[in-house]
């Protein structure tokens, strides 16, 4: 018996906004831990999220570039689970009314594109440096709340090699974004 691999990809595209998805903390890299936080991205009692207009704009541009149907109405939902890198006990994401639906990139159909916030960074500390031996971890919330566009493809890829090629050559969304695949920039939309 032989099996055929059927591959669909879920790609997290980091949007190149100046601030986080739901608060005004600046997105910069390599800062000392917990220097880019506020009541909203720390999940302090009473804090409320306000969506970043630029992130939504970038999300719509990605949808347009992929030939998606842009939703006339789109809302955020809470995805509830407990983890120390998730300060509110839920991730603000999109569920049944995503920003973009359908679309195509090369030979691969796109299922949807939605926006969400990234988790914080968990640093595992141990003398040996091995994760499974570490007793304690520390959480750095600088990255927590970074805007992400999650692109979900249909299961149209048939080999790992094909998936890799599609991802690196075709899925080149930047520099609206910093693609998880670190693809070279192919188009550069400007916010209007």
């Amino acid at each position: 018996m032989s099996y055929e691999p059927v591959i669909g990809l879920e790609i997290h595209v980091q949007l190149a906004t100046r601030t986080k998805m739901f608060c005004g903390c600046a997105l910069t890299f390599g800062e000392p831990p917990n220097t880019r936080t506020c009541p909203v991205c720390l999940g302090l009692p009473g804090a409320l999220p306000v969506a970043n207009a630029a992130a939504i704009h970038f999300g719509l541009m990605i949808g347009e570039a992929l030939g998606c149907r842009l939703a006339p109405r789109s809302i955020f939902h809470r995805k509830n689970y407990f983890y120390p890198d998730l300060p509110k006990g839920y991730q603000i994401s999109q569920y049944d009314e995503p920003l973009c639906l359908g679309g195509q990139l090369g030979d691969v159909r796109i299922h949807r594109v939605h926006l969400e916030e990234d988790a914080a960074k968990l640093v595992h500390a141990s003398s040996s440096g091995r994760i499974h031996e570490s007793r304690a971890s520390v959480v750095d919330f600088n990255r927590g709340g970074t805007p992400l566009a999650e692109m979900v493809s249909e299961p149209d890829l048939r080999s790992a090699e094909q998936a890799r090629e599609w991802l690196t050559l075709r899925c080149a969304v930047t520099p609206t974004s910093r693609c998880a695949a670190r693809a070279p920039p192919s188009w550069a939309p400007r916010p209007s």
Binding site: P33, P84, L122, I131, S134, A136, S137, V138
Partner: peptide, 12 residues
């Protein structure tokens, strides 16, 4: 710890 919020390791 180390300017971070310390928690038991998720792998512990």
């Amino acid at each position: 710890e180390a300017q971070g919020f310390s928690v038991p390791s998720p792998q512990a």
